[in-house]
Design a protein around this nucleic acid. Sequence first.
DNA 1: CCCGTATGTAAAGCACACTTTACGTATCCT
DNA 2: AGGATACGTAAAGTGTGCTTTACATACGGG
Lengths: 64, 64
Amino acid sequence: MNNRIQELRQEHDWSQKDLARRLGVSRQTVNALERGRYDPSLPLAFSISKLFALAIEDIFQPES
Amino acid sequence: MNNRIQELRQEHDWSQKDLARRLGVSRQTVNALERGRYDPSLPLAFSISKLFALAIEDIFQPES
DNA sequence: CCCGTATGTAAAGCACACTTTACGTATCCT
DNA sequence: AGGATACGTAAAGTGTGCTTTACATACGGG
């Protein structure tokens, strides 16, 4: 699962810490998501989607 | 997180077992999702979304 | 009555999503 | 040089997503 989190975060000039705070998760979680270490839960994916005002499908793309 | 899985499955006249097979998960997983025992992983949410040809947002709605 | 199908649920186990604490490196500013 | 900020990562712990096996109930068709 690829995602555009880092790209979107940088467009907003937010640090990982800033984004983490806005999402209510730890900075390490944001880092892990950006680096593709794991996928977010569905609720967290919705939070990200709402924060960036984009559809989940516009932020996350399944591998194949 | 509410979802319309049962409704969509029934529209297609599929048993939980049928749906599970199409999604590549166990019947118990489909049952648990329909009954709201837990949310699917993001990859599984995408599989469901593709199977029913609907956006994730049209199948899953965050509680608040 | 029996059999097959559909559904709900439980227990045990594994992998992953996420946390806190902590440490390392790089960069920038004074 | 020193301090602040940003990022990457590791280890240990908790809870959840999903599996397999298994059992129970209900229904419909022979």
